[in-house]
Amino acid sequence: MTAPADIRPDILCIGSVLWDVIGRSASHMAKGSDVPGRIVTIPGGVALNIAMTLARFGLRPALLSAVGRDPEGDHLVAECDGLGLDTSYLYRSDDLKTDRYMAVEGANGLIAAIADAHSLEEAGAKILRPLGDGRLATEDSPFDGAVALDGNLTEQLLDEIATGPLFRAADLRVAPASPGKAERLLPFLRAGRGTLYVNLEEAGILCLARFESAEAAATALLGRGAARAVVTHGGNETCDASAEGHLVRRPPEVMVTRVTGAGDTFMAAHIAAERAGASREDALVRAQSAAAAYVSGDHPT
């Protein structure tokens, strides 16, 4: 969807925009399980999940990512347009396939997942062209709004974002996408930039330690250089830590029916609340409530 030139996006969502293939079963699953369930194919990827949630909160997000010019990519862009997302800045290539993510979820949570985001990684810095060529900003007049990033970008590109001129005025909000990509957030620790949204496992990987609580993990992340860390721990307490102090709160108790996308929903709701002027405490409450509603199935996919 091409936005009019005088309409500036409220936030940029940079990272994975792909198809999610999710298999869900109400059964407890282990290695080798073969159980009945449902398989759905839906628009997904961390950046896209965040953008969809932001749009539900009335914001105008723009997507910066790589999407192939294959039938799957055309369909995905059409779906994004229908959701009110700005797709005019996407990097579309004839040489790259549209990325996919596949996950299996059981009653005992996420069993396994594979992220095929190779096209995004191959596109590299090409996805950031609108921030230097005048469409969104230039190096002399950098983008000064909110930016949601995910760890499906390469560490080299994330390092350029953390330290380079294109994002020096931006409000960076960063998520690793998965524990397997948590180390890609190290440039933001070294640069002391951005707000990091991580779970307890991801915080442990970044700090080379094991933690029993979100507050302990958030404290360690600040010690490693993070400007601000928001650490979740499933149904246990969440901690929002910065130089302004630590805020700790337990989320609502709900019946969990799905998990893929819960962290993205939390992050988007938190960003939307703060952009609306909510206090740190109110923003955390709203984010936890949105994530609880999502995992319980009360919010749309």
Rank of each mutant, 00 (worst) to 15 (best):
T2A: 05
T2L: 13
P4H: 06
A5T: 15
A5Y: 06
D6L: 02
R8D: 03
P9C: 04
I11V: 15
S16P: 06
D20M: 04
A26P: 13
S27C: 10
D34W: 07
V35Y: 09
G37A: 02
R38Q: 13
I42M: 15
G44D: 10
N49G: 06
M52V: 07
M52Y: 12
T53I: 13
F57S: 11
G58F: 09
R60S: 00
L63M: 15
S65P: 10
R69I: 12
D74C: 08
D74N: 09
E79N: 07
C80P: 01
C80K: 07
L85K: 02
Y89Q: 04
D95C: 07
Y101W: 05
A103P: 03
A107C: 09
A107D: 13
G109D: 01
L110E: 01
A113I: 01
D116T: 12
D116Q: 01
S119K: 02
S119L: 02
E121G: 08
A125C: 02
L131M: 09
E139W: 01
S141T: 13
D144S: 00
D150M: 00
T154Y: 02
Q156R: 14
D159T: 09
D159P: 03
I161R: 00
A175G: 15
K181Y: 11
R184I: 00
L185E: 00
L200V: 03
A209F: 08
F211S: 10
E212V: 04
E212S: 11
S213C: 08
A217S: 07
A218N: 09
T219C: 10
A220N: 08
G223E: 04
A226Y: 06
V230T: 03
V231E: 11
G235Y: 12
A241G: 06
R249M: 15
R250A: 12
R250G: 08
V254H: 04
V254S: 14
T260G: 01
G263C: 09
G263I: 10
T265R: 15
M267E: 03
H270W: 13
I271V: 12
R275W: 10
D282M: 08
L284S: 13
V285C: 07
P300Y: 11
T301H: 13
